[in-house]
Design a protein around this nucleic acid. Structure first.
Lengths: 203, 203, 203, 203
DNA sequence: AATGAATGAGCCTTCATTCAT
DNA sequence: GATGAATGAAGGCTCATTCAT
């Protein structure tokens, strides 16, 4: 008698899981278009055409444009954060953390500049459009968390200036990303060296 | 005999000057709209309505939307840069520079957060839209120049890390501006204190 | 196993066919508006309103205004040319050709003056706008072809003056069409008589 | 007592004459723009810029766009008609007329193709826009008159087919003009030969 | 589940025209 | 007489979104 509900529930879950897979699939295509054209210049049509999806499907899986973009950004979060966290996992002690963190950030810039560009674009958009605030805040908290993590592992005390430490690093990260985009590929080692310089001072 | 040309020239100049005044007038109205709605969400209609201009007039003075926006951004440049430069003018010596620079930046954040928000928005847009690159580059060079100026006056050597120094400060500036916007007005003194903290470390 | 592709292909074809039907439908509505107002005075809004289509639909089926107009003109071609060709099909020998051709042209003038007016309008436009040149050339070649056909069937030799023969007939055709429009309906028999007079001289 | 009126009248006339000179001046500039771009694509702004006139002046001398264009077309009439009439003035007898008329038409095509293109453009426009009908009719009557003149001088009887004779010639004239424009400059002698061929048959 | 046809509001831009100077 | 600043209606076109299938 209580089997039916559980069966239904299971089926609903399977359905949901399937739906999520599809949503992620769509979002990954969307990210490609957004990375290339930017928030203001990417229409749903662009996204539908870049992938091979129907226009209707986008709205079948996402309520509206904003929801899709938010979903895209949250995928960014997952990937970038887990990359850095994984890298930092093995590090311990000031020098090791500096080395590892610098390298991880530098690699991310040379490998995924386009993705970061999109992130900064959406973050700018969030300054004006409240819709994007929650997801942007959520991600920034995670990024601050990463910095906290690194500081801790480096044996550095964490105080109320944590957010500012993050802002410093972020400023440099953004700067190097822009350089990557406007001046072409940079040597990862050199980029890492810049970060190392920062961290030596900060820690 | 050569009076006529000079008269004509004078009249043409007066006309041009008048035109420039008008352009600036329009741009100032446009900035208000852009500050409020952001690049992606501000249509020329919005601008025309917010001020009391006709749609046609915008196109009479500006070739297209991009030209208007670029003009707006360049006004930002003039105002912000001259503000800071003026402030720094009287400073000399490490402590004086730190004090003055910190206060000037903090005041700009608490007074003109909206203007800076627009600047960061356009700068993001420039990552995707080449149209805005030149003006953005031009402004950033001036901003780097200001940092160079401050460093010099503080008796700090200027080396190849200048751009990074700028990026560090910019990261914090952006962070504090965002905080101003999302959490409401901050105490200028506190904001200045944050900058002072940074400069103490940097110099 | 190879059924799926063929099924898909079939569906794609059905879809394409449907699209073509719709395009033709739209074009026929558009022709009505264009016939009435002329190329320079017919906006897409006019077309949308005259029929009961949404403005968006016009752009859904046609890339832009030019493509729609070109499509309209090419429909003209199909109809007019096939009418005349059909009429000439049964004719053989000088007198029979003169009789048949004259009647066919005269009927076309009295029945479809508006359509021809549009054709001459677009042809004029093509003198200035290269976009319309290809379709206009294509149609004129077919019209010259019809004249060649008629001459041949009438046992008349075809030489390098063919294009001029066409020009002569076209001049008269245009003249009679204009007369039809400015002075009101003419007697088909009288119009045919004029053509007969021309052909008697030409052949 | 009646001196004043006559003085006033004289002054008014002088004024009018001056005004006419200016109108013609403007029209000649306008024709250049219209020849290049065509009726549908030439704005008053284009005309003002191509010459060095102010936009306001166009409306100071001409009620509206249509009046200006009509004025332009009537200038066409004067020039073309008087050219041909002058040429025909000295001709007498069938052969002389054929020779003279053919040459005059051919020269006009190779020299003034652009002007004729504009004429045909406006004539097309007149099919839809009644505003242009009167001037177009007026000009066409003069052109028919020229043909009548030529026929007469060639000793050919003039009957009710006169208009058709004109239409035949006009068809060829239009054809050769289009050829001149799309295929580039033609040899005047060859063009004249074509006309001669027509006239030999017609007369 | 998925499609893509259809919509209509909105965008940027152009233009003939008016009017104060 | 002449100018050009200003207007606002209209044009072509784009887009997120809806809906029948």
């Amino acid at each position: 008698m209580n089997e039916m509900p559980s069966k239904l529930k299971a089926r609903a879950e399977r359905k949901n899981a399937k739906r999520d897979v599809k949503k992620r699939q769509i979002a990954e295509s969307a990210i490609l278009a957004l990375q290339e054209l930017g928030y203001a210049n990417t229409s749903l049509r662009d996204i539908a055409e870049k992938s091979d999806m129907s226009l209707g499907m986008l709205h079948y899986y996402f309520e509206d444009r904003s929801e899709l973009i938010i979903y895209c950004v949250s995928i960014y979060k997952q990937q970038f954060v887990s990359n850095i966290v994984d890298a930092l996992a093995g590090a311990e002690g000031r020098d090791s953390v500096i080395e590892t963190f610098s390298n991880a950030l530098a690699e991310s810039i040379t490998d995924d500049a386009m993705t970061h560009r999109l992130w900064y674009d959406i973050r700018s958009q969030a300054m004006f459009d409240e819709t994007f605030r929650p997801i942007v805040h959520e991600i920034e908290e995670m990024l601050v968390g990463i910095v906290a993590d690194a500081l801790e592992k480096a044996g550095h005390p964490i105080d109320e200036t944590l957010a500012i430490q993050y802002a410093l690093i972020d400023g440099v990260f953004l700067h190097l990303m822009q350089r990557q985009i406007s001046d072409g590929p940079q040597d990862t080692a050199e980029v890492a060296a810049v970060f190392r310089g920062i961290f030596e001072k900060l820690l």
